[in-house]
């Protein structure tokens, strides 16, 4: 038996390194017909804000080569509704349910995090300072070092459990932001969120998204994500959770070798709703084949 468990610190222990990415996995229940979601290392639920959001107008999605653009814009029921109607349905899953927290102002992030802090069965939050799809705030927090530090500090003051901060790739040097949030008290960082992109319908000459630009995800962003995970893992001392285009066992192992303690799978779930389980099994098989006893032996084991 190999030990697949991962300790991300501050009481967040995953039974295996495979989690699912926010906004691609609903609240987990959407996948319950396909797999036993209790087998996952963790599930990061939909981006949650202080008040209900309707999101952006349709069309919100455009397929691109080996990927897709989305402009969902944080449509969600709001944190109070989440606590009342959704939390009771997901709180007893035997996996780590993390809430992805978003906002437009520091106060909004803080208030939302404070409310979630009171939920016994939510061991951590993923602070989304990197959403490219909302006009006010979102990514703005994650693209400037002082504001990333400010929002992380403010949330850290009220949120006592595991605080994972999700970084934006839409920056010149992601390691600067990573170091900033590490200093501000983050327990871990996750990356990458989507890369800003756009697509045009040449017949109508209109943008394919109602918001003109949107967030690119899927295999096409993997090399960029992998590079950023490697750079970040080398720059900070807290755990890194890697994501961006992971669609196979070997993709996941690349991220782990680059320094990711755990990974998240997003867009790939749409095409293969069973992909997470295949990746968990595949990582185990890889470790056996390499004669490793635990996942930690390959974390950051890239040979240069």
């Amino acid at each position: 038996m190999v030990d697949l468990s991962v300790n991300l610190g501050n009481n967040l222990v995953l039974k295996n390194p495979v989690m699912t990415a926010s906004g691609t996995y609903g609240y987990g229940t959407e996948y319950a017909d396909f797999i036993d979601i209790n087998q996952l290392g963790g599930i990061v639920v939909k981006g949650t804000t202080l008040t209900k959001r309707e999101g952006n107008p349709y069309p919100r999605m455009a397929e691109t080569p080996k990927g897709m653009l989305n402009a969902v814009g944080l449509q969600n029921v709001g944190v109070d509704s989440f606590i009342e109607t959704i939390y009771p349905k997901i709180k007893d899953f035997n996996t780590n349910m993390l809430v992805n927290v978003s906002g437009s102002t520091v106060e909004e992030y803080v208030e939302t995090a404070r409310k979630i802090n009171s939920l016994d069965n939510i061991p951590g939050i993923e602070l989304n300072i990197s959403c490219p799809n909302v006009k006010e705030g979102g990514m703005a927090f994650g693209t400037s070092c002082p504001s990333a530090i400010a929002v992380t500090k403010a949330v850290r003051d009220v949120y006592k459990k595991h605080l994972m901060v999700k970084l934006s790739p839409n920056v010149t040097d992601i390691t600067e932001i990573a170091k900033g949030v590490e200093g501000a008290g983050a327990d871990s960082v996750s990356l990458i969120n989507t890369i800003m992109g756009m697509a045009i319908d040449i017949e109508s000459q209109n943008p394919k998204l109602s918001t003109i630009t949107g967030g690119l995800s899927g295999p096409c962003i993997k090399p960029v994500a992998l590079r950023m995970v490697w750079q970040t893992a080398n720059a900070i001392n807290i755990p890194v959770v890697g994501m961006g285009g992971i669609s196979s066992v070997s993709d996941a192992i690349e991220f782990i070798l680059a320094g990711a303690s755990a990974i998240e799978i997003g867009t790939a779930n749409f095409i293969d709703p069973e992909i997470t389980i295949k990746v968990i099994d595949g990582i185990e098989a890889y470790l056996c084949e390499k004669g490793c006893k635990s996942i930690g032996e390959i974390t950051g084991a890239l040979k240069i």
Partner: peptide, 22 residues
Amino acid sequence: ENNMACGFGACLCCVTPTQQGH
């Protein structure tokens, strides 16, 4: 026949405006 990414409620890409919101 809206554009869809997942088809089973996980991504919220396929919305239409209704009397009760998206």
